[in-house]
Computed example of a mutant assay.
Amino acid sequence: MRNSLESSSGRNTLYQDVTDRIIRELEEGRVPWVQPWDGASCSLGLPRNAVTSRTYSGINVLILWDAVIVRGFAAQQWLTFRQALAAGGNVRKGERGTTICYADRFIPRDERQRAAESGEEPAAIPFLKRFTVFNVEQCENLPETAANTQASLREAEIVPAAEAVIAATGADIRTGGGEAFYHRTEDYIRVPPQTAFFDPINYYRTVFHELGHWTGHGSRLARDLTNRYGSEGYAREELVAEMASAFLCASQSITPTVRHADYIGAWLTVLRNDARAIFQAASMASKSADFVLGCAAGEVRSDSFA
């Protein structure tokens, strides 16, 4: 019987398989976290589990967004084969699922016993598991609650919601000038006035990008923001902020766009050198977006980490 935990070589293969797909997309001029939603059949939003309603995060957002675009699904709801059966429905015969990833750590029984005897902290072993999900459109006989899809709002209607999310962070956002940036040492965001943007909705996309950097401050999620411009570390942080902006935009039904296309070459270099980089960046981006949305939901106060 195959162990449910991936072997080291299996983990490496999974990391490389996904990374190779992302590299191919970038080389062909497509940015996986900014899909061509105008031509998509589905409404914009974050993919979520049809049974638990939990949104997927990290690399799984990119994998599932790619699937709805490429395969033309009109829904962003997914579930496993067993979940479909438990909900009273089933996956249609012949349907091909989408492989996503689950990463965690576990402590073997022997290690627990050793730690207990020695008084040391037990060492956790990381594992990466792959499993298959199906879009609700690939299923039949599901209850209406599981098969329901949400219609996206028009951009003009969702701007106030975006404003509310931004305000709830309590971030020091200063309007003016012709350049957007996050000032790490003084912990503030500078962004041009909305009237300076050719497309007004880009103001929100830009603020979300800078909020992505803002969450990395030492008093919040504590990422390394000290890398100099042009370095690999700088490219990695920009990758996190780009995806965080895309995830935040999608959560507010704003179509994501590439804010910094000139970094694509640097991102390709990072991904070619490190098969785990896209997993790490996507995970950090999800945590960043969750932090911002947690402020709006009252779950997190930006000053509570200070």
Results as ranks from 00 to 15, higher is better:
L85Q: 15
N90I: 09
E111L: 08
Y203E: 03
I63M: 11
T175H: 15
M243C: 08
E157H: 01
L44M: 10
A75E: 06
Y229V: 10
E238V: 11
T169E: 02
L85C: 07
Q113H: 14
Y234C: 03
F106N: 03
T175M: 12
N148P: 01
P47M: 12
G10F: 03
I59L: 10
L26A: 05
T185A: 12
G230P: 01
F198M: 13
S251Y: 04
Q76V: 12
R272Y: 12
V31R: 10
I125M: 09
W65Y: 04
G230N: 02
C139D: 10
S57P: 00
I264A: 09
R105P: 05
V159G: 00
D38A: 13
D224K: 08
I69K: 01
S288L: 04
Q35E: 08
E237Q: 15
F291N: 09
T149C: 09
Y102C: 01
G294Y: 09
R114Q: 09
A285V: 10
A180V: 07
T55S: 11
A306T: 08
Q35H: 02
S8E: 10
Y204I: 05
G29W: 11
G97P: 06
G216D: 06
Y204W: 07
S4K: 12
I264W: 14
S43M: 00
P122K: 14
S53F: 13
A156P: 01
W78G: 03
L221Y: 05
Q77F: 01
R114H: 10
G218H: 13
R48L: 11
A168S: 14
E6Y: 02
I22S: 00
E237F: 07
Y15A: 04
A281N: 10
G29N: 07
V70M: 09
T255E: 07
T149A: 11
V31K: 08
D110T: 14
G58E: 11
